[in-house]
Each structure stands twice: as structure tokens, then as C-alpha cells.
Design a protein around this nucleic acid. Structure first.
Length: 224
DNA sequence: GCGACAG
DNA sequence: ATCTTGTCGC
């Protein structure tokens, strides 16, 4: 487990808004996975309702079904939870945990929105941009985008549109369970995000790398 | 037992 | 997001 984190990050709302506008306006060339399984890094943050500021970020580097590396970082969360400004709260910790991994993943997967955001730049997009690695996000529901529900079978998907553009896709990861939202973020499209989510999922609803990252973080929280 | 789902 | 209680189901 690595020390703690203290990367510079937009703590001020004005600065964050400006950054979101700039990032959201960027149209970097899209990345596409190759024929072999990409090195995928996933990270997730868990909090502690009692010890308010303390938070743990778990991260795993994976390739196919294998875990290549795992890290947990502990830190203080300064910013309060404000819908739309999740990156100010969890960004620093996620970046620290992903950097602790030490590898050079092909793509990032985070429990957050990407281009489905008021300024088209949610947390998943921020983290990808800051680290310079293509990224995608996964959440239970869209932030602003809207679209029809997907079909009932695993793999069925439908477009989630915001301001006339597809920014995410509803994806049914297992038959009969509520679909998840696969978010296009830094240099990825809804289609790529959906494919990544499906590739990282089997019978359980949420991608296993994300569950593993969260499990590690919770473990560290329990250990003190 | 673990995960989905309610709330 | 977190916690807790409980049900259903593989």
C-alpha cells in the first residue's frame, strides 16, 4: 500500500468549472482497443461516514482475467459531495491510486460519468485527461443524458444522448438485471465504453475490476 | 454466502 | 456515496 496523496487539483469551484469547460470542448482522437485484451486499470473510492475526511482509493491493473498489480492509497477528501463536481472530491485520490500502480495501462475504467455531464467533462474524463490515458466510466444511471432502455439480453445496449451527441450507452450486462451506463470519457466513444464494460463483465452486473478495486479499498478501510 | 434491489 | 434490514434467487 502506498503513502497518501497530494496531487494538485482544482479545489476552487471556478477553476474546476473552467477546467471542465476546456476539457469538455476538447475532441481528442478516439482510441480503439486492439485485437488482444488491453491492459485495463480500474479504480474506486470508498468513504467513511464517521471519519468524514478519510477516504481510500483502490486500484487494479488487469489484462483479460488477470490482476497484474493492485494498490490502495489513503487520503483526505477536502471537497464536499456536490453533484456535477465529483472530480474535485475524488479525483486526487483516484489519480494517486492509479499512479501507484506503476504500469502504463491502455485504458482506465472508473465508477463515474464522462461526457455525460453539464460541461461534458465528468470525473472519468478528468482522470483520463490528467493521466493521459483513454478512459471510460460506469454508473447505475445517467447524469444528464437520456435514451431508451436496452433489450433484455446480456449485451443489449442503447444510446444515451446529450446535446445531440451520444455520450454513453445503457448496457445490459446480465439478463434480467438492471442495466448499467457505460460512459464515453477521455478519447473513448459510447461504443468502446460499452465493449469494455461487457468485456470486463460475466454473470455479475458490474465490471469485476471495479468490484475488485472497491473491495481492496474497503479492506484497507477495515484494517484501519 | 453473495449479489441485486428496495429505500 | 454509506449503513442497515430484509427478501429473493443462483
Amino acid at each position: 500500500m502506498s503513502p497518501s496523496c497530494d496531487p494538485s487539483w482544482p479545489a476552487d469551484a471556478e477553476v474546476l468549472h473552467d477546467l471542465q469547460r476546456r476539457l469538455g470542448a476538447l475532441q481528442p482522437p478516439p482510441w480503439h482497443p486492439g485485437t488482444s485484451a488491453p491492459e485495463l486499470a480500474a479504480a474506486a473510492v470508498v468513504h467513511d461516514p464517521d471519519r468524514g475526511e478519510r477516504a481510500w482509493a483502490g486500484a487494479v491493473l488487469t489484462r483479460g482475467p488477470h490482476v497484474l498489480a493492485a494498490e490502495v492509497v489513503v487520503g483526505a477528501v477536502r471537497a464536499p459531495y456536490v453533484p456535477t463536481q465529483l472530480s474535485a472530491r475524488e479525483g486526487p485520490l483516484l489519480v494517486a491510486a492509479l499512479e501507484a500502480l506503476g504500469g502504463r495501462p491502455d485504458v482506465l475504467l472508473l465508477a463515474a460519468a464522462g461526457r455525460d455531464h453539464p460541461r461534458h467533462a465528468g470525473l472519468a474524463l478528468h482522470v483520463g485527461a490528467v493521466l493521459g490515458v483513454p478512459s471510460a466510466g460506469v454508473t447505475d444511471r445517467p447524469l444528464r443524458a437520456a435514451g431508451p432502455p436496452p433489450g433484455p439480453g446480456r449485451g443489449d445496449a442503447s444510446a444515451l444522448v446529450l446535446d445531440g451527441a451520444e455520450v454513453a450507452r445503457w448496457v445490459r450486462t446480465a439478463p434480467g438485471v438492471r442495466p448499467v451506463v457505460a460512459h464515453a470519457a477521455w478519447r473513448t466513444t459510447g461504443g468502446v465504453a460499452a465493449a469494455l464494460v461487457l468485456a470486463a463483465t460475466t454473470s455479475v452486473r458490474t465490471p469485476w475490476p471495479l468490484r475488485e478495486a472497491r473491495r481492496l479499498a474497503r479492506q484497507a478501510r477495515a484494517d484501519g
